[in-house]
Design a protein around this nucleic acid. Sequence first.
DNA 1: GGATTTACCGGAGGCTCCTCCGGTTAAAGC
DNA 2: GCTTTAACCGGAGGAGCCTCCGGTAAATCC
Lengths: 187, 187
Amino acid sequence: MGTRERPLRADAQRNRDQIVAAAGRAFSKCGLEATLEGIAKDAGVGIGTLYRHFPTRELLIEAAYRNELAAVCDASVELLKQLPPDQALRAWMDRFIDYMARKRGMADALRAVFASGANPYAQSLELLVGAVQPLLDAGAAAGQIRSDISAGDLLVSIGGVGGAAADDRDQAGRLLDLLMDGLRYRA
Amino acid sequence: MGTRERPLRADAQRNRDQIVAAAGRAFSKCGLEATLEGIAKDAGVGIGTLYRHFPTRELLIEAAYRNELAAVCDASVELLKQLPPDQALRAWMDRFIDYMARKRGMADALRAVFASGANPYAQSLELLVGAVQPLLDAGAAAGQIRSDISAGDLLVSIGGVGGAAADDRDQAGRLLDLLMDGLRYRA
DNA sequence: GGATTTACCGGAGGCTCCTCCGGTTAAAGC
DNA sequence: GCTTTAACCGGAGGAGCCTCCGGTAAATCC
């Protein structure tokens, strides 16, 4: 019904991506006080263009959130290409903490989406598990980290750190290092 | 802290009453789609005047609702002055049904008030009980209605009729007549 | 009844939302 | 490379929200 027969024109896709990125910045910084005209300006498009891509504020918030989620999920594969598995995992933890901070900034906006009947969080846990699993597998295969921790347990651990040390990025870093040492210990 | 030292000027009080009445009409007819500019126009005042009396939409909705509640509560004493007790009670039941219809119209608006942290319904049951009790007492004293029904039970009965026959005013009237006969039977 | 004080009024103007439509440009075909 | 088609753009304009401030009038005092 809403499925599109042919992909967006290149300029349309580029504008859409710009809008989503600008929305991510605005909603995580200002929450519900972000204005659509401000987002359009930041994205370098007209307000009519923003409305053609995203007919409601809620749809835009959801797209912005999913974009942040996709970015943190995609990062795991990228990092594995560039770093040894254990260092890739450590770097990914930093990305995840950053993602949590932006998600916190968007909390009111996301709540408004939920109140309107949509579920912006649908499948997010599955996606995150799917992101972290390759990091764990590669680390275990390389003998760099233990092989007996589940992706779910690890995500909860990192999330705990991200929540507990939300106000102190350095402290969060130290706690992540400690967590990494725990993972290395029985490799 | 917010208590006023001296009563409003006469023109201010008159404007305030006009605004509340116009708000009652607008919110029960259009719910959350009622506009403040439209209410001000209907009340015959400027938008600045409306904002001075009611700095937020929620405060106006609450005032409009409480005005409707006060009107139906005040009606019981007025009707007792004009009619024999049993007829006064019957007439009051009609007023209450009308009040319920307007309240239903305002449901979304009242929900928004509740969501903002205020309770527009505070004390409404006590006020309604206080309105119907004199009608019951006068009827019992006159030997026109039974003396063993509580105000609370009667309100629930009338409310049941108002809800069940929400779409058929004639049917609601017939059911209220039936309820009156039940009240008269053991007088 | 007139003067004074200040409570009160109301609409202009700026902000954000949202739609509409004339103009632009990307993509496909020849 | 040119033409054609239609996807796409974007900003003007109207609606509603909300504040500010010059003007009005109600209430008090003499």
